[in-house]
């Protein structure tokens, strides 16, 4: 079971708790996690990745195990503690004014 922590505005949008548990078949990558998240909560489509390009939105960051994974290719396997469900995969609204 993969643990995913979401930013508060997306929790409000999808009416879910901050942490979501996801089952993922196959390789656990950032793309697989977000695909699974959007399949369960389709109202989140387009909010984390741009619909057209599927690229991470500029003010979204992906963290896990005290590492910034935001710039990693989407098919890079996630760290083992995330795969094992020990550590959460963090989807973060970047610190930015506005």
């Amino acid at each position: 079971m993969i643990r995913v922590v979401l930013p508060a505005p997306l929790c409000t949008l999808a009416r879910i708790e901050r942490e979501v548990a996801l089952d993922i078949d196959g390789a656990v990558t950032q793309r697989a996690v977000i695909d699974a998240l959007e399949a369960v909560h389709p109202e989140l489509r387009g909010t984390i990745r741009d619909y057209a390009t599927q690229r991470r939105r500029p003010y979204i960051r992906f963290f896990a195990c005290e590492q910034d994974l935001s710039h990693d290719p989407p098919d890079t396997p996630l760290p083992e503690p995330v795969v094992a469900g020990v550590e959460p995969y963090l989807i973060v609204g970047a610190m930015a004014g506005g």
Partner: peptide
């Protein structure tokens, strides 16, 4: 909408 999460 907005800069963080796009358009809903």
């Amino acid at each position: 909408g907005g800069g963080w999460f796009g358009q809903v």
